[in-house]
Simulated assay, not measured.
Amino acid sequence: MDDKQPRPAETRRITDVGTLKALGHPLRLKLYGRLRAAGTATASQLAAQVDEAVSLVSYHLRKLAEHGLIEEADAQSGDARERWWRAAQDNLSFRHEDFKDTPEGVAAHSAIIRRLIAHRHEQYETYLDQQTAWGERWREAADQSDFLARLNPAELTSLNAEIHALVRTYEERGKAAEAAGDTAGRENVAVHLASFPFRL
């Protein structure tokens, strides 16, 4: 399937420890993230982006594919030797409730969340290091906010659902615009959300 032919919006909920651990490897998380952003890529392209050997990247791509996290994509060039990959779904989710019954599950869930937080922190710090190069319009559009609300669990669930739905609306709007040829000025934009209770 060509990467210009979008997949239907899909979120896969990971509920088995094996798949969670496969995704939780630091290099595999990075490769999966690159594929989500790029649409499609080869092992050679990804290896250059993450500064690793092509053979190592190919190995980890195969591991992601074994767990249905990525899949082969149609060739984007005339080189039949190249194997193209893409994410097998638009989004992934993994909930503590699905892993709380075993120490291994709890540890795997905690580890991948911590790695994701570290990756997001690194991603934002990279933007901060490069923000001058982005120009005034992008700097004014970028945001880092912190909110404090007094909610119960049902209200927090509802808030998260509304925020997710709003972001998805913009995701689909961007895809439709690009499909219609409106690509000028468009960049990948990371939207990170963390909502959790705390006590003083």
Results as ranks from 00 to 15, higher is better:
58 S>N: 13
59 Y>C: 12
60 H>M: 06
62 R>Q: 15
64 L>M: 02
66 E>P: 03
67 H>V: 07
73 A>C: 02
77 S>D: 06
78 G>F: 00
79 D>K: 07
79 D>C: 09
81 R>W: 01
82 E>H: 05
82 E>N: 07
85 W>R: 00
90 D>V: 10
93 S>H: 06
95 R>D: 10
95 R>F: 09
95 R>C: 11
96 H>F: 12
100 K>V: 15
101 D>G: 10
103 P>W: 03
104 E>W: 09
104 E>Q: 14
105 G>D: 07
107 A>W: 07
108 A>L: 02
109 H>K: 06
110 S>Q: 10
111 A>P: 08
111 A>L: 06
112 I>P: 02
113 I>C: 10
115 R>W: 07
116 L>M: 03
120 R>L: 15
123 Q>S: 07
123 Q>M: 08
124 Y>C: 11
129 D>N: 08
134 W>H: 07
134 W>L: 06
135 G>Q: 00
139 R>Q: 14
139 R>K: 13
141 A>Q: 06
141 A>P: 04
144 Q>D: 12
144 Q>W: 12
145 S>A: 13
146 D>L: 13
148 L>M: 15
150 R>G: 15
150 R>W: 10
153 P>C: 07
155 E>Q: 14
156 L>K: 14
157 T>G: 13
158 S>T: 14
161 A>C: 09
162 E>T: 12
163 I>N: 12
164 H>F: 15
164 H>T: 12
164 H>W: 05
170 Y>I: 07
170 Y>F: 12
171 E>M: 04
173 R>D: 10
173 R>T: 08
175 K>D: 15
179 A>P: 02
179 A>G: 07
180 A>W: 01
181 G>W: 01
182 D>K: 06
183 T>R: 11
184 A>F: 08
186 R>V: 13
